[in-house]
Design a protein around this nucleic acid. Structure first.
Lengths: 334, 334
DNA sequence: TTGTATGCGTTATCAC
DNA sequence: GTGATAACGCATACAA
């Protein structure tokens, strides 16, 4: 059953008219008579005609495809984000190419190259945790491929970015702790070289201040985000002479590990120790003893906004001014 | 900085040789002299030449792109699957287009059309829960686009499919229950019209038999997979005069809901009632009181195998015999 | 309203 | 070894 797809030419031949007329008729060009248009469409239907998009892409220099680059789809945050991106793109008749960087800068570059080759109309990207070389941005600019960053965004001006402001959530978290009497509030932070970590620790300091609590650096520990690292970090806090009664942690994965560890050490949650973490997994709602709260970062809202900005850039031929959108993060009590 | 990408022609002009020579040189064609090749590559580098893939796609009728269609990326099972697919594809220098059906057959068709237009070299698909019209398979066959189904596969012959055999896991589950003395083992199944449900209930019956336990249909209840439906199903079991002491449930989502409900009703897990579910979320490892076990269906293994079969089909121009691969599901105790 | 001619960037088929 | 030419399928400026 090898049936090569029909082309415009064949339709033209069958109708004894010119290919251009067929092309125009199929595209509902106003200058073509209604009768002709109908006849053409009828034959097209009969021949099971389908436009060869690759030819169209080639000719029009437009692929109706956007590329999405993110660290890993196995992380719920990102699968939720890309899910929303696909929804927005689908509504615009766009298709989504995807690539996972696995937090590897080289792989990111490779994906960018591939996307460039595929002539995607635009790119959405969340940076890997270690990406430092941002020169690919200029490369894309030269090729006139718009890019919008979300969640993990570059720390420079002149680019489109959408991210969530960690400090608002942190302020709420510290306040929530303080208002029920906690004095010694710890922070289990991520790797020190991460922007996300720097932001957290600064937000943490400010939030303490705003609540008239003193900052003490023994209450800030770091984890490399492995299970072992998470446990070690918690251990460091637990051995302190004045051990903290409340902990804000880097994300829900970390929280899961440290809660488990605390439990093993015989600490009872919301009695001996309180937790608030970042990300807000749906799963907390099912746990018997969830943390006191989690700071929602709205992956879907971020992704949707980023996609919308991207499409605005794709639509307008003229340069659009780089946009920065910051969503407040929000403490959700459990 | 609008810099239109350099073309082969420009390189040719600059070197005063013909475009064909340039093309051949760039592709390391053996008939081109080493000197020329070097010179061409040098200029290409200088001009920042990048082949226009859309032109190549067009000419070669190959896009180095595969399409992946699945119900929803927010489901960990599928995000894990697509993550693995992207890994396999990336290793073959292929890119992944993705589409979510949201279990809507019309949307599935639409995505297929789009993928066809984009001339993807192949498709991986997990069917939506309600898809009944499979005629798109013939359509793809006509266009010679290979397709491999995974996880939720069509119940017909002559197609490539990879899925997990639910019965092996069910057998293990029932056996695990039986061997610690459970007599009344219930099944909370999905919607009755689903193949996945039919399979589960049949596996359930067989497994009971294999363990010398009688089948009693009051112990099989259905849920529409909403939270309410899940709770209702559990409720039905709890009001039975001889209420079950052990429950196998449709998937981890259902299990989360029913565990929560049982807890509210004062039942203590692994004492008053035992649970085993399908899917095996990583999360169980963190719960204070996880279900007794979960039946792992290996999304990554399925996805990888499906992708491999697809690439085998893409490679070989000759018809490849449709392949069916079944992985055993496996009970993982918590 | 329709047809003719041309070109998008690349590669394959000839010829030289 | 290298060059000229055609072709992939479509859209469009220009003619008629």
């Amino acid at each position: 059953m090898k049936k090569k797809p029909a082309t415009i030419k064949e339709i033209a031949k069958k109708l004894k008219i010119s290919p251009s007329t067929v092309s125009r008729a199929l595209n509902d060009h106003p200058s073509i008579g209604l009768v002709t248009t109908m006849r053409v469409k009828k034959v097209a239907e009969e021949l099971n005609y389908e436009p060869n998009q690759t030819a169209i892409f080639f000719k029009q220099r437009k692929t109706f495809t956007i590329g999405v680059i993110l660290p890993s789809l196995s992380e719920p945050f990102f699968s939720s984000a890309i899910s929303e991106i696909e929804n927005v793109a689908g509504a615009q008749n766009y298709t989504v190419l995807m690539g996972q960087s696995h937090d590897d800068a080289a792989r990111e570059l490779q994906i960018i190259q591939t996307f460039k080759k595929h002539r995607v109309d635009g790119i959405l990207m969340s940076l890997g945790k270690n990406t430092e070389d941002l020169s690919f941005i200029d490369l894309l600019e030269e090729s006139e491929i718009p890019i919008v960053f979300f969640d993990c965004v570059p720390n420079i001006d002149g680019v489109n970015k959408v991210y969530s402001d960690l400090s608002s959530g942190m302020r709420e978290a510290i306040h929530a702790f303080a208002s029920i009497g906690h004095q010694n509030i710890a922070l289990i932070n991520g790797p020190e070289n991460l922007l996300a970590s720097t932001e957290r620790v600064e937000a943490y300091k400010k939030a303490l201040e705003a609540n008239d609590l003193a900052f003490d650096d023994k209450y800030v520990v770091n984890t490399d985000l492995t299970e072992e690292g998470n446990v070690d970090a918690m251990e460091k806090l637990l051995v302190l002479s004045e051990r903290p009664s409340a902990v804000v942690s880097f994300n829900d994965f970390v929280t899961l590990d440290v809660i488990k560890y605390a439990r093993q050490k015989g600490l009872v949650q919301k009695k001996d120790i309180y937790f608030i973490s970042y990300a807000n997994y749906p799963l907390w709602n099912y746990m018997e003893n969830p943390p006191m709260g989690s700071i929602e970062q709205y992956p879907d809202k971020q992704a949707r906004k980023a996609a919308e900005i991207l499409f605005a850039n794709i639509g307008n031929k003229e340069e659009v001014k780089p946009e920065t959108v910051v969503f407040e993060s929000k403490l959700v009590l459990k």
